[in-house]
């Protein structure tokens, strides 16, 4: 909807701590309420039961944290972008924090289709709680990248499929030893995609993810790589570090 005076905004937010246990849908409802609490002028869809024009990016699984979630929302009139992050953060559940907003350019493509790559920080440990070294994980990563295919079982709509996730893995490396296990970073494409749990599985059936944090999402267009807040922005406003 391109209505008169429409004010399309992209938000970046973090979801950390206990609140990671809510679902993607729960987070959407929390935003819905936050917009009402702050009495923000949401643009509504036409029709029998008008709905706010809000669209979320990639879903975040229950239990996963993120500092790089995005959503698009359309206001019916201009709002103060500088003040918006703090206002929303105050109205959202503890742990959800709006860290940046951008006025979207006209005709910006939908968030969900635009994102081409996602970066994760994963802390992995042995399931049997035995020690694992950074070197060992590094070696396993090297071995992964030497293979041609990495088949995993994926259950989709109740049906089990075998999917090759090798094409989705673009970059992986160990960062440091964490409090429980080894922290690594992984960059995963979205077409085709791989899930963090699947990445851990191919790294070793003896491993489990202790912590999963989405650290970035990227939109790549014409060889240019940008974070979604910048990619389609007419104007950007970052929240002050808190």
């Amino acid at each position: 909807m391109r209505g008169e005076g429409a004010f399309p905004v992209r938000l970046r937010f973090a979801e950390r701590g206990k609140v990671r246990f809510i679902s993607h849908r729960d987070a959407a409802r929390a935003f819905d309420r936050a917009f009402r609490i702050e009495a923000l002028p949401l643009a509504l869809s036409e029709g029998f039961s008008p709905r706010p024009k809000v669209s979320f990016g990639l879903a975040l699984s229950v239990g996963h944290e993120s500092i790089a979630e995005y959503m698009d929302v359309r206001f019916s009139e201009p709002v103060d972008l500088e003040a918006l992050p703090a206002r929303l953060t105050a109205a959202l559940p503890e742990g959800i924090e709006v860290t940046g907003v951008a006025l979207l350019a006209d005709r910006a493509p939908a968030l969900q289709e635009s994102v081409t790559a996602v970066e994760w920080e994963l802390e992995v440990a042995k399931i049997d709680e035995s020690e694992v070294s950074a070197e060992e994980i590094s070696l396993r990563i090297e071995a992964l990248f030497e293979t041609k295919s990495l088949p995993v079982n994926r259950i989709r709509k109740g049906r089990e499929d075998i999917v090759d996730i090798r094409p989705a893995l673009t970059r992986m490396s160990v960062i440091e030893s964490g409090s429980v296990g080894i922290v690594l970073t992984a960059e995963i494409a979205t077409q085709p995609a791989a899930r963090p749990s699947e990445v851990v599985t191919v790294l070793g059936e003896d491993l489990r993810a202790v912590r999963v944090l989405r650290t970035a999402q990227w939109i790549e267009r014409d060889g240019n790589r940008q974070e979604p807040l910048i990619a389609d922005a007419a104007r950007v406003s970052e929240a002050r570090a808190s």
Binding site: K18, V19, F21, I22, S23, D26, V62, G63, P93, G95
Partner: peptide, 16 residues
Amino acid sequence: LLDRVEKPARYIGMER
């Protein structure tokens, strides 16, 4: 324990 149960957010509190 919450990674292994249904609807873990039942147990976190923190409601407005």
